[in-house]
Amino acid sequence: MEALLSLDFTARDLIARLSSVDPDTPVRLAINPFFPVEHTIADVLATPDAFGRAVLYVVESAEQLGPVPPAVTVAAGWHEPTEVPRRCRGAVAAR
């Protein structure tokens, strides 16, 4: 998965990305790189911005599903890959 950092990501770009997946695949929003949370989508709306240019808005449904999976945050470039720390369940290390 490639990070989408450009403000010029267009409807054409979105259609191209979506054309390669099963149309019945659920779509989620990954919000906030510092506390990544997964949200459901209510709608996609086209409306003019403050300058009269057409803009496509992906509208959140206000339902949070929980943390974004680590693989998504890494692929988006939000976090570095990490591993869960190992736990020592044996004897306490000698001092």
Rank of each mutant, 00 (worst) to 15 (best):
M1Q: 09
A75D: 05
L45T: 11
V27P: 07
E60M: 09
I31T: 04
A76P: 02
R87W: 08
A71E: 11
T10A: 02
V84G: 09
E38R: 10
R89P: 12
L18K: 02
N32P: 01
E80H: 08
D49L: 04
T47I: 14
L14V: 03
A50T: 10
S61P: 03
G90H: 02
A91E: 11
F34R: 11
T25D: 07
D8K: 11
G90T: 01
V92E: 12
V55E: 04
T25A: 08
G52H: 06
D13C: 03
A76E: 05
L18Y: 07
I41A: 02
A30C: 03
S6C: 05
V21T: 12
P36E: 00
R89M: 14
R12W: 14
A76K: 06
T25G: 07
H39S: 11
A46I: 13
A46M: 10
V21C: 08
L29K: 05
D43H: 04
P36W: 00
V27G: 08
R28P: 07
L7N: 11
R28F: 14
C88R: 11
N32Q: 06
V55P: 01
T40V: 04
P85N: 01
S19G: 07
F51M: 15
V84F: 15
R17Q: 12
A62N: 15
P48H: 06
G77D: 00
A50R: 15
H39W: 11
A42K: 08
D13F: 04
A75R: 03
L65E: 09
V74K: 07
W78P: 00
D49S: 04
P70S: 06
L14C: 05
L56F: 10
A76W: 02
F9C: 00
E63Y: 06
A94I: 11
V68L: 04
P69V: 05
F9L: 02
L56E: 06
P36C: 00
A30G: 04
V59N: 05
V58Y: 04
I15F: 13
P33G: 02
F51T: 15
P26E: 05
S20W: 11
P36R: 00
A62R: 12
F35P: 06
